[in-house]
Amino acid sequence: MEITIERLAKRYGDRPALDPISARIGQGEFVAVVGPSGCGKSTLLMLLAGLLPAGEGRVLLDEVPVDGPPAGVSVVFQDYARSLFPWLTVRRNLALAAVAERPARAELEHRIDRALRSVGLPDTAARFPWQLSGGQQQRVAIARALVAEPRVLLMDEPFAAVDAQTRADLQDLVLRLREEYGVTIVLVTHDVDESVYLADRVLVLSPAPGRVLRDLVVDLPAPRGQLVTKALPRFAELRAEVFRLVMRPVDGAAP
């Protein structure tokens, strides 16, 4: 699914959160959005997800304007505890993702089992989310996103609430899922390393109100790996460039 962002802007009351942004994200592309905190990158993602009404401009998914959460788009939120439903088992949490399209029972069971296998948690269907570790819960949240068989996966700082080891695991999991499901991914993160390591393109936003400072192509070879990719000189160059862009506007203005 192709995402077209046309002069998209958003204000919260008097405060502009997002200056008009335009961009195109191709089918199967992995785009990371980075920027200083409060720059509107999460707002951008919520607009893409149809969870916030646009102020100006619009978002098109394969030429169809977004107004409300569209079919074929799944969202993974940062805070898994407020995203998974603790009163439902893992299986029932996952099943909710398909309620809207009502697949046959066997089909649903198959999708749930496949999604849980894909995230490496095949034996957790009968457990409750709070019986799992934080990293496992975020895996369940990702599995739920997969059950809807999305063509676009939107991720809002999905690895911010877990420890470093788990984060690396989850990053590689997302790379694998992208291969397995052929899905278009937009990832919002404040982690510069993460954006360069994962994405094909990095959109760097300015401080609020956010606009696109740079649309950077990440020309690192696939497949990527924590050790190999991060040891490449090109990784260091790209990382330094994104870092400079993110930090630049606050140089000398730090409190």
Binding site: P69, S74, F77, R82, F85, L96, V99, A100, R144
Partner: peptide, 14 residues
Amino acid sequence: DPGWLRTARSLRLP
């Protein structure tokens, strides 16, 4: 919790 409601909306629950 608005987080749960937002999730429910993104899942397009009837």
